[in-house]
Structure formats: structure tokens, C-alpha cells
């Protein structure tokens, strides 16, 4: 058989499987899938922003009585949430549509993955550090208040308590940081390599053409 004969037979190839689709069901399911996807994305963004706003409100309320470190912590919560939401909106605007050329779509996906890797690799700077600043201010001021306002004899026990608290926070941060780096290694880097290879195979002959 010649390739041209194969081409002729391709569109009329015999079915070895009967595929039935309920047309009435199809559109409703496709629409529902779209709604589910959009609401899942919205819920995720809303949840993250809402948690930050609630935490910030709590810190601001306690800050009225507890002083500026709690205000600072509230501001840092808003900063992290604001950064995350703005970044998502910016990336969504940059994303190319699925009806672009394959090359354009792969380039866009690669950009998204590269940005995600950058975000997770730098999680310390935009996520952990702002909270750390707030927490260090809070712990420092609590210790300062204790030694200033109470019996200096309480200072060592306060220091011990705050030390345990700080160590727990550091441990939590270490966990968050390494979880993010694990996600980069396990999921994002292989995906990036996959997309780079795809893009390379789309580009290799174009370079020769030039």
C-alpha cells in the first residue's frame, strides 16, 4: 500500500468501536465543566484573599489594644494576599488563548510554568519574609514589654516561651519552604523540560530556514 492510498482510507477508516454520545447531555456537561473550572479558580483566589483579610482584621482589632506589632502583622497579611492576587491577575492577562498556534500556546505555557517555578523558589521573599517581619516585631515587642513592665525575674521564662514559639515558627517556615521546593522538583521542572523540548522541536528547522 502506498501512503496516498492510506490517506484516502484514513477518513473512511472502519470503526472497531461504537462510540455513542448523548447530544443533549454533551452541551450541558461541557457548560457545567466550564462553570466548575471557573468557580474552582474563583474559590481558590477568594479563599486565599478572604483568609488574609480575616487575619488582617483580627490583627488590626487586637492591635487597637496590643500595639503596632499586630498592626504590622495585619499589613503584612494584606501585602501577601495582594501580591498573590495581583500576580494571578497579571499572569492570567498574559496567557495566550488555546486557539493560538501550537508554538504560541507552548511558549505561553512555558512562560506560566517558568513563572510558577520562580514564584515557588522565591517563596521566602514574598510569603515567608513579610510574615517573619511581623512575627519578629511581635515577639520582640512582647519580650520588651515583659522585661519593661513586669518583674525582671520573668524575663528568662518569657524568653524560653518566646524561644519555643520562634522555633516552632521557624520549623513551620522550613516545612512550607521545602514543600514548595519539592513541588518545583517533582512537578514543575519535569513539566518545564517537557515544554522546552516541545518548543525546541518546533524551532529547530525554523532556525535553519533563517
Amino acid at each position: 500500500m502506498k501512503f496516498d492510498d492510506l490517506q484516502k482510507g484514513w477518513k473512511n477508516q472502519p470503526a472497531d468501536m461504537r462510540i455513542t454520545i448523548d447530544p443533549a447531555l454533551l452541551l450541558s456537561i461541557v457548560k457545567r465543566n466550564k462553570r466548575d473550572l471557573e468557580s474552582a479558580v474563583f474559590r481558590r483566589d477568594f479563599r486565599e484573599a478572604a483568609i488574609a483579610v480575616i487575619l488582617a482584621t483580627i490583627f488590626f482589632c487586637f492591635g487597637l489594644h496590643g500595639g503596632w506589632p499586630l498592626f504590622l502583622l495585619g499589613v503584612m497579611c494584606l501585602f501577601v494576599a495582594g501580591y498573590l492576587v495581583c500576580d494571578r491577575m497579571r499572569q492570567r492577562r498574559k496567557r495566550r488563548d488555546i486557539h493560538d498556534t501550537l508554538r504560541g500556546t507552548v511558549e505561553s505555557s512555558l512562560h506560566q510554568v517558568t513563572h510558577q517555578i520562580w514564584l515557588l523558589r522565591n517563596v521566602f521573599w514574598w510569603y515567608l519574609l513579610p510574615f517573619s517581619i511581623g512575627l519578629v516585631a511581635l515577639i520582640g515587642s512582647a519580650y520588651w514589654d515583659t522585661i519593661k513592665n513586669y518583674d525582671p525575674g520573668y524575663a528568662p521564662i518569657t524568653l524560653l516561651f518566646l524561644g519555643i514559639y520562634a522555633a516552632s515558627v521557624v520549623l513551620l517556615y522550613w516545612g512550607i519552604y521545602h514543600l514548595n521546593q519539592w513541588a518545583v522538583r517533582k512537578e514543575l521542572l519535569p513539566r518545564k523540560r517537557e515544554l522546552e523540548n516541545l518548543l525546541k522541536s518546533l524551532a529547530e528547522h525554523n532556525e535553519l530556514d533563517d
Binding site: 470503526a15 468501536m17 461504537r18 455513542t20 454520545i21 465543566n33
Partner: peptide
């Protein structure tokens, strides 16, 4: 979140 929309049925030769 999805339910299957296609029914596959083998057609034996």
C-alpha cells in the same frame, strides 16, 4: 467532577 459522556462499545470482527 466529571461524568463520562462517551460510551465505548467494542465491535467484534
Amino acid at each position: 467532577f466529571r461524568k463520562s459522556i462517551i460510551n465505548f462499545e467494542d465491535i467484534p470482527a
